[in-house]
Design a protein around this nucleic acid. Structure first.
Lengths: 340, 340
DNA sequence: CCTGGAAACGTAACCGATAACGATTGCAGT
DNA sequence: ACTGCAATCGTTATCGGTTACGTTTCCAGG
């Protein structure tokens, strides 16, 4: 089924059709100035040889390629959701998508890889890029839309309403009667992490519950970062009766640690996550969490990038998407609190 | 955060460092023949200007790019799993990954898109490609590894042991006492679909149960294709007591139709799927299915492609990975059958 | 028959990088 | 001082296309 044949180039087609490569190019791109007879000849030569234009060569010479890029920092479940949304938005739009991922995503990779990826893609290959979870500054020749940008970024971006989501989550715990609520934060540099922590503080403040700094663990959204933090919180003589983790991945690790230390969930400990990744529905117990539609995030980001590239959208702006609380089995009233 | 600046090219660096582009190229690629002083100058110029080599230009001129490609026909959950495996295998290997997806993946796209993608990538951009679930023949200049190849393909590929998996699934139903077992097949052109049907037939034959062709529906692995087929099977006067669907996506649609028509699962109808996608664990009832590790499939495919590209592996071959039955809540003994 | 001008097509420069090749330099050996 | 050989570096062709520009062809109008 696989023939390893030499690649057929435009000059091959030109030779077969008895014309110059310029003419072939004109035919391929449907430009003006070729007689009907020549068009037919070239078309037939293309057909016979099975010619496909080289994306690389085209993009080197041309400014527009009709290809958008996506750079992600890893391939977790939520990345796949974002991708689905992006693909949906791009469907039948004439834009193709290239996802670039490097081999150092696991392990100790050097800093600045995102910039490297972006530069490599935006050099000439793509007309614009979507960046999922950027690490720092972004320099690019072509438009960039960030999903979940860094703090203080004024670049075009799409985010969930993290503040409202986190507030609702903590209000839910407060409503169940919890007063000692632990928090595991996300990567500090990201705006989302900051907003979620703000929501946590705001909800406590509104309920008149003072914030206990020792109940806050500093994670980085990476599931593994939550394990030691959860251990510290739960091994205290006075563990919290509930823990709100800034991501589902970290919340699942909290469940793991709780099981390991003999806490029953939600009996001894309530746990709330953020993201609503597919796994959170199928764990035992299933996880109460804040739903943010990664699909929608991807969809809107792609829509925005498309407009930026075609020039229909000129001002940098930010789209905020709503979140909603999904109550499942990992939350219940605390044992100690007798109030309903 | 975003500076839209002109891209800095190699000649910019050359000018800044007072040398020729050839020398810059030598420095960038660590080639022999540049004095230490010049290297330092060039390095500093690269640093100052923030130069990054253009993937496009490099790949056009060079034969090796150290980038592998992946072409998939859609972004379902299993594609994400494959991706994770691929990334793991490529981690710290020096190979980057480019995933190419076109905008016609949804809707009525023209046939042959895989070939287009592959040609665009394998032209010069990538050193080799992984193709997930191909729908047709494949021609390529560079090595290609197929996951779930077409029937009769002798190309390098990685597959699950579909025959054994399907056999075990049907044996499970037979063991529960089912005798009228419906089957919803996958896309005929794929080897996996064929093997799964073979397993179905083999298990029935071994148990002395004749195959009833009217109990077989011809789907195409696409979830939507199963809906009308399930409807036909379940609206018969004598519906089967169990249905084995060749993919989880289709099995989930069977569950939907069953619910819609008032069948209780597993009371009135047992359902078994194939793939073990994440969703199958969280449905109501959870789905009994055959687990194939898409992660492992991706991992092995990437490992194989890497070897093919570096020339360590020369003979085309096929890797077969084991499958295992995961019994959940969608299967039970049939009501009518009183035998244990 | 000559001219003008548009249509059709080829020529060649160019995109950014690589590499074969040639040119220059420095220095040891005689 | 001259030769020879490395080491170092620039020149240039090239990858596969695109496009500005020049050239040829052809036909209508004078």
């Amino acid at each position: 089924m696989i023939e390893v044949n030499a690649p057929v180039t435009m000059s091959d087609v030109a030779r077969a059709a008895g014309v110059s490569t310029a003419t072939v190019s004109r035919v391929v791109n449907g430009h003006y100035g070729v007689s009907a007879r020549t068009v037919a000849q070239v078309r037939s030569a293309i057909e016979q040889l099975g010619y496909e234009s080289s994306l690389v060569a085209t993009s080197l010479r041309r400014s527009r390629t009709n290809v958008l890029g996506l750079v992600a920092h890893s391939f977790q479940s939520y990345t796949a959701e974002v991708l689905k949304g992006v693909m949906k938005a791009l469907s039948r739009s004439g834009f193709d998508l290239i996802i670039y991922a490097n081999s150092d995503l696991y392990g100790s990779y050097s800093e600045g890889w995102e910039q490297r990826h972006l530069t490599r893609l935006s050099g000439t290959l793509t007309d614009g890029c979507i960046v999922v979870t950027p690490w720092g500054d972004i320099r690019s020749r072509t438009p960039v839309v960030a999903i979940d940008p860094v703090r203080g970024s004024t670049a075009p971006s799409v985010v969930s309403d993290n503040l409202a989501g986190a507030t609702t989550a903590v209000e839910h715990l407060l409503g169940l009667g919890h007063r000692r609520i632990g928090f595991i934060a996300g990567r500090d540099s990201l705006a989302s992490a900051w907003s979620r922590e703000e929501g946590y503080r705001a909800a406590l403040a509104a309920a008149g519950v003072p914030v206990d700094p020792t109940l806050i663990g500093r994670g980085d959204f990476n599931p593994e970062s939550a394990t030691p933090l959860a251990r510290v919180l739960l091994q205290r003589p006075d563990p919290p009766s509930a823990i709100f983790a800034a991501s589902d991945g970290m919340a699942l690790k909290v469940l793991e640690v709780a099981r390991e230390l003999g806490f029953s969930v939600p009996g001894d400990l309530s746990v709330v996550g953020f993201d609503n990744i597919p796994e959170s529905a199928s764990t035992q117990p299933s996880l109460t969490t804040v739903d943010q539609s990664m699909y929608q995030l991807g969809y809107e980001a792609a829509r925005m990038l498309k407009s930026l590239v075609t020039g229909e959208w000129d001002e940098p702006s930010q789209i905020v998407l709503p979140t909603s609380l999904v109550v499942r089995d990992s939350t219940a009233p605390p044992k100690s609190a007798a109030r309903p």
